[in-house]
């Protein structure tokens, strides 16, 4: 009898894990609450560090899902999971019940709600947008304008919005925002060659392959400027432009600057679905709200509940590269567990 795995969450982690498992002749049911698979990558236009089109990723992952071992349920949410003699029973909003030998949680992350950082003015000032808003704008249009339709002359990218911030309630580093800011700054500069672009950062964490190179390219080729200082607040001018306050910590003096557009690099926070399911299953969370691993080095796909595994950003913010690797490793762990 073939073993069966239920994967909850059809983002890139769930998709990659599903295809990997199917190649090992394991039956997979992939459940996604949204209409489409792909998760947050679907919101993205181009990816760091090489400006690859994000659709290539989802397209490739979708192609691999065409397998007789894989069944997909979209627009479906989980209502309950119970465990009986080593087997799981998963109930969904579509009134279905599925049996499973193992469950993979790949419910991903939520985006930080930038309105919580009121002093930055998101939702209050019309020329304050988030990195996701910017990506949408880059995707939809060839030009980038202010709310009034005017071409912005100066743009500020604000790092660490909802990350590394006790006041937002999230102490962790979201890992991808620094490099995303660099990527988006370059893209904006490509569209608006005359615009000045400033990145306000606390620390630049260019840890991945080709990240540091992209940072250097941003300076060298595109003239992006970097200010080491955390933004304290923004105020709106009469014309809708913004006056922002920061300290230029490297010169040791407070800095005031008028910008036309402000982009908040919003972080990754634990997703509500993960919290909901984790609580239901009795899974341990770490202090940052993401799922905890008892052994962070050797067993980083395992939870404290036998048979329940994790893949991707349910455990911590990750890049796409890391998520794919994590999903494959989870598939392997599951295959070992159920055989």
């Amino acid at each position: 009898m073939t073993k069966k795995v239920v994967i909850i969450g059809g983002g890139i982690a769930g998709m990659e894990a599903a295809s990997t498992l199917s190649r090992m002749n394991i039956d997979v049911l992939l459940i996604e609450k949204k209409q489409q698979l792909g998760g947050h990558v679907g919101e993205w236009d181009h990816l760091f560090p090489n400006f690859r089109n994000a659709r290539e990723i989802t397209r490739s992952l979708l192609y691999d899902l065409q397998d007789k071992h894989i069944k997909i349920c979209t627009s479906t949410e989980i209502t309950g999971i119970s465990k009986k003699s080593g087997k799981f029973e998963v109930r969904t909003t579509q009134q279905q019940t599925f049996k499973a030998d193992s469950i993979l949680l790949s419910t991903g992350f939520d985006l930080f709600d930038a309105r919580k950082k009121e002093e930055y003015g998101y939702g209050i000032y019309e020329n304050v947008i988030t990195s996701v808003d910017l990506e949408q704008k880059l995707k939809e249009s060839n030009v980038l304008t202010m709310a009034s339709g005017v071409i912005p002359k100066r743009i500020a990218m604000i790092h660490c919005v909802g990350s590394r911030d006790e006041k937002s309630g999230y102490f962790h580093c979201s890992k991808v925002c620094c490099i995303t800011a660099v990527k988006q700054a370059i893209e904006v500069k490509q569209k608006l060659p005359h615009a000045e672009i400033f990145c306000f950062y606390m620390d630049l964490r260019m840890y991945g392959k080709k990240f540091e190179e992209l940072y250097r390219e941003a300076q060298e080729k595109w003239g992006i400027q970097f200010v080491r200082g955390r933004l304290s607040e923004a105020a709106e001018n009469m014309d809708g432009s913004l006056q922002i306050k920061s300290e230029d910590t490297l010169s040791g003096r407070p800095l005031k600057m008028n910008v036309d557009l402000m982009v908040l690099m919003i972080g990754m926070v634990p997703s509500e679905s993960t919290t909901f399911l984790g609580k239901m299953l009795g899974i341990h969370f770490s202090e940052d709200g993401f799922i905890n691993h008892d052994d962070i080095h050797l067993e980083n796909n395992l939870t404290n509940v036998p048979g329940i595994f994790t893949a991707g950003t349910v455990t911590s913010p990750m890049t796409i590269t890391d998520t794919i690797a994590d999903a494959r490793s989870a598939a392997l762990k599951i295959a070992t567990y159920i055989s």
Binding site: G229, R230, L231, S246, P254
Partner: peptide, 17 residues
């Protein structure tokens, strides 16, 4: 990070970091 200095009421009026 300099957030304190940036928002500082006194720093807004005089050289104070």
């Amino acid at each position: 990070c300099g957030g304190c200095t940036a928002t500082c009421s006194a720093g807004n009026l005089i050289d104070f970091n």
